[in-house]
Simulated assay, not measured.
Amino acid sequence: MRYDGPLWRTLRAADPEGRLAQVAVLSAHFGFRDAATPIADYDARLTEDLAARMIAGGVTTRWPRPPSPRQSDTYGMQAGAEIASMTRYGAAPFEAIALVGGRLYLDVMQALLPGFAGMGCVQPNARINFINGPIGRMRQDLRRWLCEAEPAGGEQP
């Protein structure tokens, strides 16, 4: 509920009960999170430098980073832990994925996919859709993906 931009409004309108897809968010401050996980208010934008650090850190680096380098690295959450919990620790790996966002966000998400796959959270033959472009087109593409992704047997993509 923290995010309320046009894509989030499209997601809520197309999937008001949250049954069509499991949703993760890539936050410039908190890293990857299950979208159902509450987060505190923050004011940060994803920059080239931050995106490069997230990519270099892979799925095991905790976000947010400790406020001081002298603090232990038990601060924040690992992207891998968040995604693993969404797939019941690999028991229900993702079969279809839509990566939605601006270029930097897509760069980070795409770079971390092999790590999630290596953990068994993404099937090797998973269908990956990239949704990027003008906001109107992204909203259409997201709605289309959600409607096409309606799973048989009640499983979420």
Rank of each mutant, 00 (worst) to 15 (best):
Y3F: 14
R12W: 07
G115Q: 01
M109F: 01
T47H: 10
A126I: 10
P69W: 02
R2E: 14
R137M: 13
P157G: 03
D141L: 09
Q22G: 14
A52Q: 10
G18E: 06
L26N: 00
F116I: 00
C147Q: 11
I97E: 04
I97R: 00
M119K: 05
S27V: 05
P6A: 15
D73E: 15
Y75T: 09
S72H: 13
T47N: 07
G58H: 04
E95Y: 01
R143F: 00
M119Y: 03
H29N: 12
Y3N: 09
D34Y: 03
R53E: 10
C147A: 06
E48I: 08
A98D: 01
M1S: 15
I97V: 15
I131L: 06
I39H: 02
A40I: 04
M109C: 06
P114R: 02
L113T: 03
M1V: 14
G5H: 10
A40C: 09
A149F: 03
R70V: 12
M86S: 08
Q71C: 09
R127K: 12
E148D: 15
Q140F: 04
D43A: 13
A21N: 03
R2T: 14
P6Y: 05
V23R: 01
P124N: 14
V108M: 01
W145V: 05
L11P: 00
M86Q: 11
P69N: 04
P134E: 15
A84C: 12
Y89M: 12
F94C: 01
R70M: 13
A96M: 04
R12S: 08
A56I: 03
L20Y: 09
A21C: 10
E48S: 07
P64K: 05
L20A: 09
F30V: 00
L7R: 04
P157M: 07
I135D: 08
I39T: 07
A44N: 07
A96E: 12
E148N: 11
T60Q: 14
D141I: 00
A81I: 06
L50W: 01
Q78Y: 02
R139K: 09
G120F: 12
I83N: 00
G58E: 06
P134W: 13
F94D: 01
N125H: 13
R33L: 08
A28E: 07
Y75E: 06
F130D: 04
D4Q: 13
P16T: 01
P93G: 07
W63Q: 01
R9Q: 14
R9F: 03
G133N: 07
G58N: 04
G58T: 05
G101V: 02
P124L: 10
V100N: 00
P69Q: 04
F32S: 03
V25G: 07
I39Q: 05
R62V: 08
V25E: 11
E17N: 06
F94N: 00
L7H: 06
